[in-house]
Design a protein around this nucleic acid. Sequence first.
DNA 1: ACGCCTACCTGCTTGC
DNA 2: TGCAAGCAGGTAGGCG
Length: 304
Amino acid sequence: MPELPEVETMARELAPRVVGRTITAFHTDWPRAIRHPDPGDFAAGVAGREVLDVARRAKWLVLSLTDDAAMIIQVKMTGQLFVVSPETGGDRHVHHVFALSDGMELRIRDTRKFGRLGLYRRNEAGRVLGADEAVELFAGHGPEPLDPSFTLAAFRKRLRARRGRLKPLLLDQSFVAGIGNIYADEALWLARLHPLRRADSLTPAAERRLYRAIRSVLIEAIERRGSSIDDYTSLDGDGQMQHHLRVYGRIGRPCHRCRRPIRRIVLGARGTHFCSWCQRLPASQRGLATATLLRSPRTGARRD
DNA sequence: ACGCCTACCTGCTTGC
DNA sequence: TGCAAGCAGGTAGGCG
């Protein structure tokens, strides 16, 4: 499940393999993944361009190419990157292949085909312009939680402007960019805050705990090269953060603080893991929690 | 602003 | 055993 730490790891490990190389050809067997422009223009647009830089914005990879071009790779749920020689065996889940001038191939493997590719332009400031070039591609994203400009004061201001619950809020990319289901749960546990807690109900001390928790869990996960759960792996192999998670995937196992079992609820169609002892809801908000959790599960056929 | 829904996908797990 | 529903979740878009 690539989130900020996983995509950051991919960017760091991809860079030394592709920067300075020119893309000589592109082939895909899943053109629906190409969001902009159309697949033929994408292939023609990347061919002949050199990779100048690899960066990350939110959970997106940004490859700066010559001629002010910017290629975007969204790995989403199951995207994996490999840089290998053309003789290396692949499988049916490799959908996109870039041939590189050093004879290697950048391959994108994506079991569930949720990943997206796009080719855009960069302006003078290095910002990526959207499809119509009137708005930046990342205009709708919130701040980068590890950027120096993301201060406690700035976080407080954003938090107090919201009335929703903490878990869905942390997953909202326009609130803070890059947090996904795993690190939202981990940050809330670290901050000792219930996932259903209202964002504007935090004490100043709790706001500071959450701010620090978000940053520390993301930093730790980057140091461990991400959580290799299900499909995620990076170019240098699996990350190690999955062995250090405090709540995610630990249903029924003891809380690292109080030894009581970790619980799982479903919130906004997302599995939510927490310690109901360490992460208590104020009495005034418990009615809200009950109403939410008792709401009937969704029905309706998922297949047609 | 907010919550909720659906769609996109495939492979693994679960239940009958 | 075999089949199929259920589930996993990042993101976009729609609705009320």
